[in-house]
């Protein structure tokens, strides 16, 4: 078992149960904290009863309950979704960076698994694309509960590697996702910014709602190295750089901050939800962001 893998015992679940377990724990833990679900509506599937208040439609009164209790109760149903979400997970080499915490790719795996669990729980259709410069796996969005296992299996069997050049690939995917939906991108976005922005714009052009989780390690933000360090490129073999980090820190942070700032500004202009996720932050932060976004969609 890899050092940074999730520590729950998977014996009670299927062989893909690690991500499943993690996702369930994260999502249920998250939902337990919400006293009143704001996401219940009037759909085909009954959810619960609530007391009638003036102004409620009479047709939703459950007369059987009235017959039994003599009180008006309204039947609530879970809303039937028409949301199709695509989760794009960047599996390039740079996502394999492991600092003091779990790797960026693992973090992306947890977010993707948790979101999938949550969305499928809410009957949203979830699809998954793992990629580096090429698509590794593509799973079309479905709502069936068995679909989760497939998603988790795909996530878990993917290892980071290869180069990142996401812009052409995202262009291609934007063309493939015909029906309007939600695109959730989990990536460190280490690519040339103009191409990246053009690709994101393509998603928006297709009227997809785009949620960009920019996953970075704290070390990539703070650059805390002090001794002379040889940085070995995770994406290009034999590309090494021996530097005095103290000399470079200022320049590095300037470059990095400028990149993040431009990315945030550019995505903001395109009404893309940009969220910088540090690998030392809890995964459920991503769930809150998603649900807020989901609510806004209604």
């Amino acid at each position: 078992m890899p050092a940074n893998s999730f520590q729950f015992d998977p014996t009670s679940l299927s062989k893909y149960g690690r991500l499943s377990m993690m996702a369930r724990t994260v999502v249920e833990g998250f939902l337990t904290g919400i006293h009143k679900s704001p996401y219940k509506g009037f759909s085909v599937e009954f959810a619960e009863h609530r007391q009638y208040y003036p102004g409620d439609e009479i047709r939703h009164i459950d007369w059987r309950v009235y017959g039994k209790t003599g009180r008006y109760y309204i039947k609530e149903y879970e809303e039937e979704t028409n949301l199709k979400a695509h989760i794009l997970v960047d599996a390039s080499g740079s996502m394999g960076y492991t600092g003091a915490h779990i790797s960026k790719f693992q973090y992306a795996q947890y977010i993707a698994a948790s979101l999938s669990y949550l969305m499928l729980h809410q009957l949203d259709a979830v699809g998954l694309v793992t990629h580096d410069t090429k698509v590794r796996n593509i799973i079309p969005p479905k709502t069936s509960s068995k679909h989760l296992l497939r998603l988790l299996h795909t996530l878990e069997s993917t290892q980071p590697g290869g180069e990142t050049s996401m812009a052409p690939l995202w262009h291609e995917l934007a063309g493939q996702f015909k029906r309007r939906g939600m695109v959730i991108i989990l990536s460190d976005c280490f690519d040339q910014l103009p191409g990246l922005v053009r690709a994101l714009r393509h998603f928006r052009f297709r009227r997809h709602e785009v949620l960009l989780f920019h996953i970075v390690a704290p070390e990539e933000i703070d650059f805390p190295f002090k001794k002379w360090t040889q940085f070995r490129n995770l994406e290009v073999r034999d590309h090494k750089l021996l530097v005095d980090p103290q000399q470079l820190r200022k320049e590095y942070k300037k470059n990095f901050d400028a990149f993040c700032k431009q990315l945030r500004e550019q995505t903001g202009r395109m009404q893309i939800d940009y969220h910088l996720m540090r690998t030392d932050e809890p995964v459920d932060k991503a769930l809150g962001i998603y649900l807020t976004k989901r609510q806004g969609r209604r």
Binding site: G93, S94, M95, G96, Y97, T98, K104, D188, F190, E220, F225, K227, W228, T229, Q230, F231, R232, N233, L234, E235, V236, H239, L241, L242, V243, D244, L248, E251, Y252, N255, F256, F259
Partner: peptide
């Protein structure tokens, strides 16, 4: 000596090291 005794880090954000 400092140059000879260095740490090795597998790094993703290489593009920001290019000064």
């Amino acid at each position: 000596l400092n140059r000879r005794r260095f740490d090795v880090v597998d790094w993703g954000a290489m593009q920001f090291l290019q000064i």
